[in-house]
């Protein structure tokens, strides 16, 4: 049996030894990184094999990269997690002679010399399928949009995946929308309650305009399902495409109508009697312009499910 003092000495010795070993292993990376001997392979900090990158690219470098550790790309317990070279290539020359060949094999920044396709292939090597199934052939792919045009990989907060900041990213290219969302009749886009990716899949879809569902109407129904019907009396453009009458990005006419009543209705309806009346704020036909316009009478404009037909139900009056 050892007495207590010997036990304490042994424990202390072990602690010192362990501390020494840890100190040898860890400290140089932060304190003496520049003095590394060529014979000592740099130690990995986050990802497998990242030592040869992080030895230079620490947080004080022009291209800090350690924050990737905060992201899903930094979760090493997941066997699928990539390494630096999975995306950036081996970059042998870059590592060996950083001053002569300052770029790794594949870069993603503004000054990248790699083609967009080459850059995107690095992402698609893992992110093919699922919601990105239709990336190939999508408008964004065809217009040379790089994944990194929208996504930032080495940061904890990817702006485009945040509901509040996502529209700013989209507006970098879709500038007209920046104006439309500030019109008086709008979806709550500014509040982050309806955002671009609620309706559009930027990675492509089987629907038009990269709709998240297979067509415009089915996408609108995800929130406005009461418009689906079918009704006893259908209003044909409603069934065909909501966007015939509405601009979901914002308008100056109530209910996101592209143009005000009576003008929008007169783009289709025959001038039988009152249907052809000009816009006015006074007189008998003000009823077609003021308040809900034509909808003052034709209230069920999306369709009426009234089986009776004695009060102009087919004209959507009840």
């Amino acid at each position: 049996m050892l007495d207590n003092s010997k036990t304490a000495q042994i424990i202390l010795s072990w602690l010192l030894a362990i501390s020494f070993v840890i100190g040898i292993l860890i400290l140089p990376k932060y304190v003496f990184a520049e003095d590394l001997d060529d014979a000592d392979p740099p130690q990995d900090l986050i990802l497998k094999g990242d030592g040869k990158c992080t030895v230079c690219h620490d947080e004080s470098s022009d291209n800090p990269i350690l924050a990737i550790g905060k992201t899903k790309h930094g979760t090493t317990a997941d066997h699928r997690t990539p390494t630096c070279t999975s995306c950036h290539g081996e970059g042998g020359n870059h590592e060996d002679t950083p001053h002569k060949a300052p770029m790794p094999q594949r870069t993603f920044g503004k000054k990248s010399v790699n083609s967009i396709e080459e850059r995107n292939n690095a992402c698609l090597a893992c992110h093919q399928g699922g919601k990105r199934m239709h990336w190939s052939g999508s408008t964004h792919a065809n217009r040379d949009v790089a994944c990194t045009s929208c996504h930032t990989i080495h940061t904890e907060q990817d702006k485009v995946r945040n509901r509040i900041t996502q529209p700013e990213v989209c507006f970098n290219c879709h500038k007209e929308m920046r104006q439309l969302i500030n019109r008086p009749y709008r979806h709550p886009i500014r509040e982050g309650k309806v955002i671009c990716s609620d309706c559009h899949n930027p990675h492509g879809s089987a629907g038009p305009s990269k709709m998240v569902r297979d067509n415009v109407n089915d996408t609108c129904y995800t929130c406005h399902m009461e418009k689906r019907g079918p009704f006893v009396y259908n209003h044909p453009p409603v069934q065909e495409n909501c966007a015939i009458c509405h601009n979901p990005h914002g308008t100056t006419a109530p209910n996101l109508l592209r143009t005000r009543s009576p003008f929008i209705c007169q783009e289709c309806h025959e001038p039988n009697t009152h249907q052809g009346s000009s816009g006015t704020l006074t007189g008998a036909y003000a009823r077609n312009t003021l308040a809900r316009g034509c909808l003052n009478c034709h209230t069920q404009i999306h369709g009426s499910n009234m089986p009776e037909n004695i009060r102009n139900e087919s004209m959507f009056q009840r």
Partner: peptide, 29 residues
């Protein structure tokens, strides 16, 4: 006055993509 009626939908789907070569890819739904 009639109000919006109840309705429902059910969809079965299959979508896919196949890379025939590194530069040739097909998708479908």
């Amino acid at each position: 006055i009639s109000l919006a009626p109840d309705n429902q939908s059910h969809q079965g789907f299959l979508s896919g993509g196949y890379s025939f070569t590194p530069t040739t890819r097909g998708t479908f739904k």
